[in-house]
Design a protein around this nucleic acid. Structure first.
Lengths: 163, 163
DNA sequence: TATTGTTATACTCTATAACTATA
DNA sequence: TATAGTTATAGAGTATAACAATA
């Protein structure tokens, strides 16, 4: 093997810490977290004919009241043309209704149908389960702290509706 | 955290926590963390003609000593055919050398070239910066704790090799 | 018979550009 | 002139199947 004991000793910033394990690098950890949570969600969402993106979009519509497709695009950093396809899919599935805005007739206001709301409730339950399983390794007392720290990282990085 | 006592019990009526903000859902947070860290890494890695995947693969080769393409496939959960393309790219760039294993002549042993090692050192520096920036919102005292909790979530979920 | 690496191929996801209708 | 939404299209990224060489 390599036995490179030239570890940086936890210091950051003073040169590249080449001996450091990939498993300890933040980008790799985040990549792993993503694999973990989306792989876990996949099956349950598929049973509702949803995936990560369509779940996010349904939840975004629920949360934002009547939102436009541009709103969703900004909300998730997804290209407007991709939003079209997603909303098409959700509309075909009978979960979402497009209504022309009376104020600005270029825009659609997106609404959940009754069935869409029902699907979303089931999806929230799936995601509650996924989240509980995801956090299970932590001591219960650590969970709020971990969530708070994660929120802190996110909040201070992006003023949410950028671009 | 939030009154989750009613969740996961399977009782009808208690139902999903529909009013909960998407921003507080773990899957969405993880999605955001990924956007954040990979968007931050993009520019710096691009200057080295790398991206997230090629950085991971280079680091995997450095760390694993002589690894095979199958090793990398298992290490990152990337399809073997995709590994071929990535190693092709890195070999063309002069960062990686394929050597037939003398023990098992079906396998390649992948090695970093001198230039590959130099590129990787620069990439590690980029990622050190990305990580420092990523964690900047946290109080310095919280950083080790946050890292430890993240590690805990990951370690207890996957027996790493997963073969 | 199984495994490592490869090619060909198809399918998904996403982005770019050009268009329409409205503002 | 600018914006919301749409379409067509092309480019990544990834997965499946079939294959050669080797075990």
């Amino acid at each position: 093997m390599d036995g490179s004991a030239a570890r940086g000793g936890g210091t950051t910033g003073a040169g590249a810490d080449t001996g450091r394990h990939l498993a300890e690098r933040t980008a790799f950890q985040v990549y792993r977290l993503g694999e973990l949570v989306f792989r876990a969600a996949e099956t349950g969402l598929a049973a509702l004919a949803l995936n990560g993106r369509t779940y996010f979009v349904l939840a975004g519509i629920e949360q934002g009241g009547p939102v436009s497709q541009q709103d969703l695009s900004r909300m998730f950093g997804i290209d407007p043309t991709t939003i079209v396809a997603i909303v098409d899919e959700l509309e075909r599935a009978g979960s979402v209704r497009r209504e022309r805005s009376t104020v600005d007739r270029r825009r659609y206001e997106l609404h959940l149908t009754r069935e869409g709301a029902r699907t979303l409730r089931a999806a929230h339950r799936v995601m509650d389960e996924v989240e509980a399983e995801f956090l299970r390794p932590l001591a219960p007392a650590d969970v709020p702290h971990y969530r708070a720290l994660t929120q802190q990282v996110l909040d201070r990085h992006r003023p949410v509706g950028r671009r």
